[in-house]
Structure formats: C-alpha cells, structure tokens
Nucleic acid binder design. Structure first.
Lengths: 205, 205
DNA sequence: TAGACTACCAAGCAAGCGCTTGGTATAGCA
DNA sequence: TGCTATACCAAGCGCTTGCTTGGTAGTCTA
C-alpha cells in the first residue's frame, strides 16, 4: 500500500524553478529553522542568485507558507485515497494512523517537520490561510473517530482522542527509526491498540 | 497535591537581577521564538539597558540554556517528590503523567514551551549539557515504566511507551484548556487509561 | 518584427542585530 | 579610605539580512 522505502518528492515540488525552490526551502527550513535560513542559502541550493528568488515568491514567508500548503494538500489527498480503500471503521482508523505516521517519518518528513516546527514563524494571516486548508484534513480524522465512538470501538471522546493521537504521531519524528527494533507496522498497531476499547491481538511490542 | 490555579515562578527565576532576566526571556522566547526575540527586548522587559545584560550572561544563547536548565531542575525535583509520595506502581505512573502534564499546561508552561520549541536554536554543545540534566528526569520515567511492564500493568514496551506518552503530553500545550470540557484530572486519567492493560474504571471522557 | 512573459543576474540599500567598550554608582569589607 | 564586586548606562561597531532596482536573455505569439 504505502511505499515507505523511497523518500518521494512532494507533489508541487517538481523540477520547475518554483518546485526546486520549494524543495530546497523545505530541506533548509527543516535543517536550520525558518529564521536561520537565509534567502541567499535557498537560492544557492536551487542554483540561482538570491535576487531571482523574488521573481517567484513575494517574500521569504510566502515560501514557508507554500511549503506548508503543498504538504497539506499532498497528505490530505493521500489520506482520502487510503480511506476510500478501507473496508470498515477499524481499518479506517488504522489507515489514518498509518498515513499520518508515514507523512511524519516517511516521504514528506522534511515538509511535515517544517509544518510543525516553523508554525510560529508564520504571520497570523498566513496561519489562517494554512489552517483553512488543514481543516479538511482534520475533518477526515474527526469523522472516522466519531464513527469509531458511535460503534464503541474507542473509549475516549473523539475531540480529545484526535489530539492525543496527533501528539503521539507528531512526536515520533524525534525518535522513530524504521530500522530500529520497532517496525512501522508495529508502531501503527501499538498506537491503534492504545486507542481501542479492547486490546488488539498480538499488538504487544 | 499539585496546585494548578496559580502560575508559579520557576525556582531560580526569582527577583534577583538574573532571575528577572530569565523570567523575561522565558516569556519572550515563548511568545516570539528565540530568533525573533532581541536582547534589547529582553533587557527592556527586565528593566535594564541591553548592554547590561551581558554582565549576567555571556551570550543570548546562554540565556536560553539557563531557562532550559532551570525548568528541568524544577520539574525533576517535583517529580521526585511526587513519586516518593505515591503508594504503588500504578499511582506512580499516574503521578508521572500528572507532573509532566502540569509542567506543560500549568505553572512552568512558558519555560517548558521554550524547552520544546527553541531546542533547535541551541548549539550542539549546549544541547548536550541540557540533555545530561534531562537524563535524570527520563530515568525516573523509565524506571516506573519498567516496573509497570514487569507487573503487567502496561502492554507496550517501556521505551516506546515513554515516547508515545511524551508526544501526548507535550502536544497538550496546543489544545488543552483547564477551563474546557475536559478537566486536568480527567485528561490525566484518559492518558493513563490508554496505557494500562485494563481500562480504568470511569475513565471515559 | 515587436511586445509580452518568464527567468535569471548583479549590485546595493536600509534596517537591525549581538555584542564590545568605556564609563558611573553603590555596597561591603579590611 | 581604598579596593573589590555587583550592577548598571550609553554609544557604537561590524556584520548580516530581506528585499529592491535596473538590467539581460530566451521563448512565444500576433
């Protein structure tokens, strides 16, 4: 299902001049943080001079926003496709966890870290724009969690459970190593098991 | 037990000139981020001129490190005291969760957010110094989690469980409101219930 | 051919930053 | 009294930053 071996380029971050800038920016923002990444560095990483960069983006902050928007779009689409293929509520819940974890530790890791770590560097206006897009993604989550609660699959209130899950998955970027003792699927099942009313068979790690 | 109504000053951040600087810095770093907080702003918030600040700290980054060290010390001491008063393993696990949550959403909220959010702004050398101190705190966690696993109180491997818990608790700073529908104690019990092998009675939110 | 569009270059501006330097003032102690 | 330590002030240094400005070059279309 989800290809975890290859770190794919986020859609929208292709080989066009704009795409190259976004890719370079995502990587540098993740490595150095937004504030400590200069436009000269981004331009150099994309193979152009710094003044040229302002032909594509009005400001450094607009680059940050664009990185965030691209990764949200990509992962929302993936989540929708994956949900559509899940046969029941429990499978859909597992798919949510797996997709979000994949976005954080897999192919869109860099850009997702930018979303989480550079959020405060975005102005309130731009945050609002990004949040508007993020809302659709969050609705996917809440719809499935409400369904799971209605079927007594989970014990915790959907609002709270979503946030506890977001914490577990987001934090995994600080420690999860797919080559470590815990595999990706094991971690997904562990997290799922912590949410379900009854333990999952064979879920212990 | 834990006083959650009053936002206490972190020890070490008293009314001395140095303490006033640390308090001001913690607040500004949390509000603006490390990079976007200038030494002029910190000095002004503490009631002095910016040049004077370097009498107390060698660099801006040393201020950041000091904020982190103070909050780790304070919370480690609190955790130790709280654990000493817990009668059994389950109570100790609950105490860990409650203490960490209190540090994140309660009295040391500002400084804890600085620890989490400004971590990347610290040089590797200083990160190592802070981590050395943090290790004692993490050992408190792992000791209790190992005990819980040995008594079959929890299903998940202690190493993994600690990290999933860290995610849930850390992320709570983005959403938890003590005046909201979920109380502090309810949230503690919810998180605890997700860790235990058997559901906690009356734990649903 | 000329104009519009895309994409880039090079130079440099204005603002702001962490930190230094040379000083003053006060308190405590021998 | 003189020295030391603590704590502060004020001015300014050298450097960095995001962005502007004036330009060149290539492609496409009427």
């Amino acid at each position: 299902m989800v290809n975890r071996r290859r770190r794919l380029t986020v859609k929208g971050m292709d080989d066009s001049p704009r795409g190259k800038l976004l890719s370079a920016a995502a990587r540098l923002f993740r490595q150095r943080g937004f504030e400590r990444t200069t436009v000269r560095e981004i331009a150099a990483a994309a193979g152009i001079q710094s003044g040229s960069l302002f032909h594509h983006f009005a400001s450094k902050e607009d680059i940050l926003k664009a990185v965030m928007i691209e990764v949200i779009r990509y992962n929302t689409a993936r989540m929708e496709a994956t949900l559509a293929a899940a046969p029941d509520t429990r499978a859909r819940l597992r798919a949510l966890i797996a997709c979000e974890l994949e976005s954080i530790v897999g192919d869109t890791r860099e850009a997702m870290l930018v979303l989480v770590r550079c959020w405060e560097s975005l102005s309130k206006e731009r945050q609002a724009e990004v949040l508007a897009l993020r809302r659709a993604y969050e609705e996917l989550w809440l719809a499935v969690l409400r369904e799971a609660a209605a079927r007594s699959l989970v014990r915790v209130d959907p609002f709270v459970l979503r946030r506890l899950l977001a914490g577990m998955v987001s934090w995994s970027n600080t420690w999860f190593d797919p080559r470590g003792p815990t595999s990706f699927d094991q971690l997904v099942d562990t997290i799922l098991g912590m949410c379900l009313r009854e333990p999952v068979t064979g879920e212990s790690t």
